[in-house]
Design a protein around this nucleic acid. Sequence first.
DNA 1: CTACCTGAGTTCAAAATTTAGACTCAGATT
DNA 2: AATCTGAGTCTAAATTTTGAACTCAGGTAG
Lengths: 135, 135
Amino acid sequence: MALAAEILGDRWTLLILREAFYGVCRYDDMREDLKAPRSTLTDRLNSLVARGVLEKQPYQEAGDRVRQAYVLTEAGRGLALTFLALAQWGEAHVTGGAAPVGVVDRESGAPLRVGLMDADGAPVDPARAALRLRG
Amino acid sequence: MALAAEILGDRWTLLILREAFYGVCRYDDMREDLKAPRSTLTDRLNSLVARGVLEKQPYQEAGDRVRQAYVLTEAGRGLALTFLALAQWGEAHVTGGAAPVGVVDRESGAPLRVGLMDADGAPVDPARAALRLRG
DNA sequence: CTACCTGAGTTCAAAATTTAGACTCAGATT
DNA sequence: AATCTGAGTCTAAATTTTGAACTCAGGTAG
């Protein structure tokens, strides 16, 4: 997990990824949302690309030159569970239940949550979890 | 989630919390494990206490004066799911499957994982998740 | 009593990072 | 030819982090 911490252990990186999950993928849009300094934003985007969490995708708007969009890679999308768990925690313990967004099933609209499960998908109380070294 | 990002958006904070989950709770033990500078460690521990993620607990070893241990609060333990999700991601996408630890059921020893579930606890594919604003 | 040890800090100057703001550059538009 | 825009780079100043040295309180050894 040390490497994961190295990737995520930064305020701007976390916020940039949240933007990415919301679908914001252009430099200037992120800059405006986050009010991050240009050089820091450039730096963080580059490291996320270097780490394989984001990738640059060329796009072109009518009557404009080709530009780059930053979109989540497969690995980046894999962070969804982590972010959902974090949002769930923030809601429960930090913001006091007033979180502005929740997770729902894309089709049915039913509320979803992150939880622990066993190999068969049956829910398990997180208090039962223990870390175990692997041979 | 912005507040949560403010709390976790820091390399040392993430690593300190990992130590706390492993049960390390003494200043000098953490300092040695993490090789963090004293002043930074002190600062991060204090903010985690101020945020209500850790708390100081007095303890006393035979023939020694009372000292403080840093242990997870209820809210801090609530971060377990986030950390497990992060560890799971690191294992799948960063370290390439060679993660040293896994999560198991404390009693049965069966392997566990973090996942998305609906209100009834039935597993849901994370790709089906969507963020939804709440009224 | 005096000297020394240890855990848990605090202090401080040097090094690294972050910031705001100005500047650049390439192609499109007027 | 002049201007606009997205996406940067450059730079000097402000802030944060670092490592090393110092402090402090209580306990122990001689």
